[in-house]
Design a protein around this nucleic acid. Structure first.
Lengths: 245, 245
DNA sequence: GGGGAGAGATGCCGC
DNA sequence: GCGGCATTTCTCCCC
């Protein structure tokens, strides 16, 4: 395709807010929250209906460079070469793509109003434990959802069988030192707000790293193994979570 | 394009490890680490040379669904409809895309061996402070890089002018409670390992949230305002970082 | 708009 | 492979 034709079609397509795909050999330079430079190589550039621009290399799942919605884009032809320039004046971000060769170029109007439905999150874990408190231990009684929010961002808290206030932090992944830090912050906050000497802290997650376990022991906190529930489960039928709750 | 032609071209292109772009109206279903469902809408599907698959909606910078490198993909035509199915047996992940309409479809061999060069990261901040310790305070002496690693993932540590061991945690963004927690973990680790009563903790970042400041005061730690360096700086010339170090 | 926290986080580097 | 951590994180929720 003639570069002049590309420029014209691209400007026109941008005006109509269409999805634009450009596969090309290029360099990419970014300046804004950080600075980056990516030397010559083959990439796919996508300009979306909401003016988001992403640059993908032929590997990896995330864009190597991007400009968020609210940016403006235009083609510039100089003696030095052909540039696709993006800028976001509000955030002082700039992205310059120098285009050497175009492999293909497509554009089309697109509409998508749907949001993704997701199951198996940390929130799902907390809900499952709330409805099945014996997963933590016999005699554990979660407090109501309203009580819960009064203390801020605590996943679950309630009373154990000995009536000791207990804070539970859920993680859908392997518990690590950061998770223990978070639990610690919440336990200390509840202690302070309630004026209590003893508050139990429990980390509920599928597994735990050695250093996190060590930190739990040091602080007198506990670990309970819980896996996040997957409502739409089809393949891994043997998973040890509560089904159909 | 005939769906049969699409299927043939896609299978062929997959064999050759080309970059594939498919814009279509579809639904997306995922099962693996979690479960998700995305109902009908227009999306761009990209299958990369390394077998990564990403699904992009017409807005936002990140893929709404994806399969990582190592997955296999194929077209399946049933009485119910046309499916692009991906699976990764090693990680027990499955992605099923039901295709209703194709807007465009392209593929091309791509090669890109280059890595991005990035400036303005936390590591860059730490390097800058290491070489310009007076940015923290007069008389601060960082220890060698080797000493540094002995204590784990501590950005910088060294001695202040009164010879008190000091731990510095750098953040390229506004310091928050999590950053203070991290600093605290490192200070306490150094205290324990070295058997010291007094170790200073400094959070070095451009700014700080009110709650983080409060936490620093409580713990007896300090805040020093430092911005990450941007080597390729072109636009914001007034930024208060050390240039050309 | 800022603060707080999750994410199918991803990606990087270390052991 | 796991572990520990940064990320131009992004995104959502809530004040």
């Amino acid at each position: 395709m003639e570069i002049q034709t590309l420029a014209w079609k691209l400007e026109d397509s941008l005006k109509r807010g269409e999805m634009i795909i450009l596969a090309c050999h290029c360099t990419v330079e970014y300046s804004g929250r950080a600075e980056s430079y990516l030397s010559e190589g083959d990439r796919v550039i996508m300009i979306k209906s909401d003016s988001t621009l992403v640059v993908h290399q032929p590997n990896g799942s995330n864009p190597i460079n991007y400009m968020k919605s609210g940016s403006s884009h235009h083609i510039e032809m100089t003696d030095e070469g052909v540039y696709l320039r993006s800028q976001n004046l509000a955030t002082k971000e700039y992205l310059d793509i120098r285009i050497f060769r175009v492999y293909f170029f497509d554009y089309h109007a697109m509409e998508d109003t749907k949001s993704i439905e997701l199951a198996g999150t940390e929130k799902d874990m907390a809900d499952m434990i709330f409805k099945n408190p014996e997963m933590i231990e016999k005699g554990f009684t979660p407090l109501s959802q309203e009580e819960h929010t009064k203390f801020g961002f605590i996943d679950i808290f309630g009373y154990d069988k000995k009536n000791i206030l207990t804070v539970i932090e859920c993680k859908r992944y392997t518990g690590d030192p950061k998770a223990v830090d978070q639990l610690r912050r919440y336990v200390e906050k509840v202690k302070k707000v309630k004026g209590l000497k003893k508050v139990r802290g429990i980390l509920a997650c599928p597994s735990i790293t050695a250093s996190a376990k060590e930190m739990l022991l040091e602080r007198g906190y506990e670990f309970v193994s819980v896996k996040p529930p997957k409502y739409l489960e089809r393949y891994d039928k043997n998973q040890k979570t509560l089904e159909g709750f």
